[in-house]
């Protein structure tokens, strides 16, 4: 296996999964977003999104809070500093890999 391909082994697999990558990308573009917005933007079912968010929360990448906006109940998700760092590192790794493989 070439060094270029071996580099893929170091990728953060938690973020590399397509649905989670989309969730993290959306969250990185905002200060926070609620469950409904994430569900619509990522095109996931309620259960699927919940499962992915739980994994990201367990890893400390995402913080989930139940709050109210006026009388509206919201489940707000936010990328933590650890999550932001992991996402930035993932993007850099992927960019390097793509630059090398052309």
């Amino acid at each position: 296996m070439s060094d270029d391909l071996r580099g893929l082994n170091d990728l953060d697999r938690l973020i590399h999964e397509p649905a989670r990558l989309l969730i993290v990308t959306i969250l990185s573009a905002a200060a926070s977003a609620d469950f409904l917005f994430l569900q619509r933007e990522a095109g996931l079912t309620k259960g699927n999104l919940s499962a992915h968010l739980s994994k990201l929360e367990e890893a400390g990448y995402v913080k989930i809070e139940k709050t109210f906006k006026g009388k509206l109940p919201l489940t707000v998700c936010k990328l933590t500093a650890k999550g932001q760092k992991a996402y930035t590192a993932y993007r850099q790794q992927m960019q390097m890999f793509m630059d090398k493989t052309g």
């Binding site: 905002a30 977003a33 917005f37 994430l38 569900q39 906006k69 006026g70 509206l72 919201l74």
Partner: peptide, 17 residues
């Protein structure tokens, strides 16, 4: 206030940096 009544219940809430 208007977004809380119209937008957020329909398509979700986003807080911007």
């Amino acid at each position: 206030i208007v977004k809380t009544r119209i937008t957020y219940p329909r398509t979700g809430y986003v807080e911007y940096r």
